[in-house]
Nucleic acid binder design. Structure first.
Lengths: 139, 139
DNA sequence: TTCTCATTTTACTAAATAAGAAAATAGGAT
DNA sequence: ATCCTATTTTCTTATTTAGTAAAATGAGAA
C-alpha cells in the first residue's frame, strides 16, 4: 500500500483513533492506554503497532515501560494527517469522554496503575467529577 | 462508526482513492471510471457507493449515465479530508498514471466508450503519447 | 544468576470486507 | 407497450482483519 492509504487505514479504526488522540499532545505509556480503552493489552499493542508503522506514532522505551507519542519531526503527509485529527477527532463523543478519563488516569502513578491492572482493579469512570480528578493515586 | 473513521475508511482502499482522485476536479461518469480501473463495474459501483456514503462524492443522474463529483458544499471535515487528498494523492505513481490515462478517456465520447466496453475493447494505455491524446473517438 | 513484570508476538477464531457473476433496477430508444 | 443498456444490488466465495489467550521478549530487581 502507498503511504496515503497506509495512513488512512491506520486512522480508519475507532479504537486506533482513540489511541492516537490520547497521544496527540502528551506522551502516554501503554499501561495508561490499556486503562483508557477496554481491550486486552495485546490488542492495544497491535493497534499501536499499526499507528507506529504508519508513522503516526513513535515509541520510546523507558525501563520496563514503553511510551508513545506523535513524531516530533513528521513528514508533510503525516503532519497534515495529524492536523486533520487534531481539528476533527474531538467531534467524537467517545474521544471527548476519553480526554476526561485521561485526566483521572494522569493522576495515578504508572507504577500504581500497573499494580491496579495486575490486581484486577480499574479507574472509576462512572461519576465524572472533575473537582476530585487531581487526586486518586491511592487505591 | 463516527464520521471521521467513516471517511478515513473510505480513503483507506487504493482503488477507492484512485476513483476519488479521478473525480476531484472533474465530473466523471461510471463508464469512464470502469475504463480507468481494471475492476468489474459491480466493484466500481460498490466502491463509489462507499465514497458517496462517506460524503466524499456526490452522484448525479443524466439519462442512463451516472456522474460522480466531489460535493460543491462539503462539510468542514469533508473539505479538509479532500484537501488532504488533493495535496498528497498525487504522490502515488498509480494516480499520476491515472491522470494521463484520463486525458485519453476524456477524448472519447461516453457513448463510444460504453460501446467499446460492451464489445470488449479498451483504451490503449501502453504507449503514452500525449500529442495524440486529443483524438481517439473512433475505434 | 533468577525472579518479576510491562509489553510484544504468535496461534487461532470470529467477524468484516473485497471481488465477480448474475439478477434487478432505471431510463432512453424503437 | 417492448427492447436495450448503464448502473446498482444480491449472492456467494476468498481474503483480510480484530480480538483473545498463551507464549516469548526484554529490562529492572533481588
Amino acid at each position: 500500500m502507498n503511504p496515503f492509504t497506509t495512513i488512512t487505514h491506520a486512522l480508519s479504526d475507532p479504537n486506533r483513533l482513540r489511541l492516537l488522540a490520547a497521544c496527540l499532545d502528551q506522551e502516554r505509556c501503554v499501561c495508561q492506554l490499556v486503562e483508557l480503552i477496554d481491550l486486552s493489552n495485546a490488542s492495544i499493542s497491535k493497534h499501536l503497532a499499526v499507528l507506529r508503522n504508519a508513522g503516526l506514532l513513535e515509541s520510546r522505551k523507558e525501563g520496563r515501560w514503553v511510551h508513545y507519542q506523535t513524531p516530533p519531526t513528521p513528514t508533510p503527509l503525516i503532519s497534515d494527517a495529524l492536523t486533520l485529527v487534531r481539528q476533527h477527532a474531538l467531534d467524537d463523543e467517545q474521544i471527548q469522554a476519553d480526554i476526561i478519563k485521561l485526566t483521572q488516569i494522569d493522576a495515578i502513578e504508572p507504577h500504581d496503575l500497573a499494580r491496579m491492572q495486575r490486581e484486577g482493579c480499574c479507574v472509576q469512570t462512572d461519576s465524572v467529577n472533575t473537582t476530585s480528578s487531581t487526586q486518586g493515586a491511592s487505591i
